[in-house]
Design a protein around this nucleic acid. Structure first.
Length: 682
DNA sequence: GTAGGGTTAG
């Protein structure tokens, strides 16, 4: 062996260059052939093949073995060459050799058949894999525990579960179904093919499960958007004493990302650090995506910045994280960095950047990325076309969105293309057109999904098409179970149309407890239509569900405020007129409204308007109108009096020569002759 | 005797 080793070494150093010309190489190998017994020759070639790192080199070796007929004598070397061809992405050459052996050599062993099947399967050649599997049967060669995993793998990744089931039957007949690898592949196939129960059943009945089986099942749950189940299984796996490896962690991180659990995200991150998994690009990428989905872009960025090597998935995860967290401008900055880094910009990158443009509502930017896509000659798949349409619709350019849609061949359009356009029409207020598209879509045989129904209900809502919306909802319940968001759309639609009781009845009929978006839609409708009674019910539910969401408190407070202004006071018109004349009189006397007291972020003009109708000003105006001039005007208020009202009351006390006594949340203010007892310190 | 399964962005 020592001798062979050095010979091998010598060959490698000495004849690399002449390889371009087969002659010297060939004569050298010939010498070897004569110098050693056939067994030793086989070992030499075996070593040669092991060190072979390119297709050209491999073809040379193949040629020599063919001309010396060694290929027909050594099935082992034949198999090694087939394996190498597959590794270098040349399954056709592998197949040619396989066929050659089939004709010239002994009948290929099941080992060789498996090798060829594997070459096809790993190269993603689904049809060839399955065809060879069937030829194998006809040739009378039995598949074994090495055959089945590859068959199941291609069935899984090409959604050919029926064919997979047939092969499963073969495995049962031959008794290989209880092999660990076969079982793991079956679990994977059934789970990926939406046949969870079958996959889970096999998994549960396995006599022995290793880490790969657990990971396959965990991954299946995660990819089927069942992250809770994935994590429950992960916990069980740990209870069984198995330790997660980097592949497991990738799936667990994805599951946690889906759930948005920031705390668990941190613990997975730590685990990955402790086990040095973050050095693997795949793990780092999934940890980045996890933090991004949990809303923590700083942590995502930290991982990203620490990476020694990044691929396009790393960059894209960051870009999409920034976009999804409302930091589109950060995404734009990072995109420039990505371009400078020389990393490949792929269709996913383009998709994210188009979505970022849509988020910013900038058709200028969106168009720039559209041009970039066309210039880069990258393949524009349906997802990217859909994103472009969505971007144009969201940037106010519905015409271009429609233009793109019309340019796509009808057979190419998927359900998402229709959804994008329907929602585009909806958000532009064209409810009738959205409905027409919805019918056209069904006529063309495209099955609507839950997003289609959300889009169409929302379109009806914005256009006030209540009857049509009701009908869509009824039709929808025939084929799919309505989700929260559909109820929210319905409540919004009915509520906007003033059908508050019907909206409330619908909420009461819901099979599951309504969430915040359903109650939020009702509350908004109550605000629009001034319904205090239902508003209180909606608000109370919202305050329990989302106690920290300030927007709902503001909405409810506005309902109360509107009710106050809602003219219960028979003199309201006089009061409002008085406030207006008071303002003019005060301004003549030098009053400048203190706009900083109007806390809403609105135009200056609106701020002044809001200030004028502060409840204490209305009360004082009412007092001036109603109370004898000799008497003090007394106002009681439950909040601290604002600066602007305080200033105004000083002016009024002077202009009208009246005492105004205001009790606010903390103290009394006595206004008289242009000043206040608090001496402006309160 | 040779060979094998589970992974990340949208």
């Amino acid at each position: 062996m020592q001798r062979l080793g050095s010979l091998h070494h010598h060959f490698f150093l000495g004849s690399r260059k002449p390889l371009l010309n087969p002659c010297p190489f060939y004569s050298f190998i010939s010498i070897c052939t004569f110098s050693y017994s056939p067994d030793s020759t086989e070992v030499i070639y075996d070593n040669l093949l092991k060190s072979c790192d390119g297709l050209a080199f491999l073809k040379q070796i193949h040629l020599v073995l063919t001309t010396t007929s060694l290929i027909d004598k050594s099935p082992h070397l034949g198999a090694q060459i087939i394996i190498k061809y597959a590794q270098f992405g040349d399954p056709n050459s592998a197949r040619a050799l396989f066929d050659h052996i089939n004709i010239h050599g002994d009948k290929p062993s099941s080992f060789l058949w498996n090798t060829m099947i594997r070459a096809y399967a790993n190269g993603g050649h689904c049809f060839e894999t399955l065809q060879l599997y069937s030829v194998m049967h006809r040739a009378g060669i039995s598949p074994n525990n090495y055959t089945f995993p590859f068959i199941f793998k291609v069935c899984a990744s090409n959604s050919l579960i029926l064919l997979g089931k047939v092969a499963h039957g073969d495995a049962l007949k031959t008794g290989f179904d209880s092999d660990l690898y076969v079982e793991a592949a079956l679990v994977d196939m059934y789970a990926k093919g939406d046949q969870f129960c079958d996959g889970r059943k096999i998994f549960d009945e396995m006599s022995m499960k290793d880490l790969v089986c657990w990971t396959a099942m965990i991954t299946a749950y995660e990819q089927a958007e069942k992250p809770e189940e994935a994590l429950i299984l992960f916990q069980k796996m740990q209870q069984e004493g198995l330790l997660a490896d980097s592949v497991t962690i990738v799936s667990v991180a994805s599951a946690i990302g889906r759930l948005g659990h920031a705390k668990r995200a941190q613990s997975v991150h730590c685990y990955a650090i402790r086990h040095l998994f973050l050095e693997e690009i795949c793990v780092a990428n999934s940890v980045i995506a996890m933090h991004a989905k949990c809303g923590d872009m700083d942590k995502a960025r930290l991982v990203f910045d620490m990476m020694d090597e990044r691929n396009s998935i790393s960059w894209n995860s960051m870009l999409s994280g920034y976009t999804q967290n409302g930091k589109a401008s950060e995404a734009l900055l990072l995109f420039d960095e990505m371009r400078d880094s020389g990393c490949e910009l792929n269709p996913v990158t383009a998709l994210i950047m188009v979505a970022a443009s849509a988020y910013l509502g900038s058709s200028h930017l969106g168009r720039k990325f559209h041009d970039f896509i066309l210039d880069s000659k990258m393949k524009v798949d349906m997802n990217l076309w859909n994103a472009l349409m969505d971007m144009y619709a969201k940037c106010g350019d519905l015409e271009t969105a429609v233009e793109i849609f019309s340019g796509i061949h009808p057979s190419e359009r998927d359900v998402c293309s229709w959804n994008v356009l329907i929602s585009g029409y909806g958000m532009h207020g064209y409810g009738k057109e959205a409905l027409k598209l919805f019918s056209r879509m069904q006529e063309e045989g495209v099955e609507p999904n839950h997003i289609t129904f959300t889009s169409i209900l929302s379109a009806c809502s914005h256009a006030g098409l209540v009857d049509e919306g009701r009908k869509c909802f009824r039709d929808m319940t025939k084929s799919v179970t309505p989700e929260m968001k559909h109820y929210a759309c319905m409540v919004d639609m009915l509520g906007r149309a003033g059908l508050l009781q019907e909206a409330f009845d619908l909420i009461k009929e819901m099979p599951a407890p309504p969430n915040d978006s359903v109650w939020g839609a009702l509350l908004l409708a109550c605000k629009i239509h001034g319904n205090m009674e239902l508003g209180k019910i909606a608000a109370n539910n919202l305050f329990q569900l989302e106690p920290n969401h300030t927007g709902y408190y503001v909405l409810m407070s506005n309902i109360y405020a509107a009710q106050t202004a809602d003219h219960e006071n028979p003199y309201w018109q006089e009061v409002y007129r008085k406030v207006e004349s008071l303002t003019i009189e005060m301004k003549l006397a030098g009053y400048i409204p203190d706009l900083s007291c109007a806390l809403h972020d609105v135009e200056e003009e609106d701020k002044e308007h809001i200030l004028n109708y502060h409840s204490e000003k209305l009360a004082v105006a009412f007092g001036i109108l109603m109370i004898d001039s000799g008497m003090a005007i007394r106002v009681t208020k439950n909040l601290r009096v604002c600066n602007d009202c305080h200033l105004a009351f000083k002016y009024i006390s002077c202009i009208y020569g009246r005492r105004i006594i205001v009790r606010d949340a903390n103290r009394f203010h006595h206004f008289q002759g242009g000043s206040c007892s608090c001496k402006d310190y309160w």
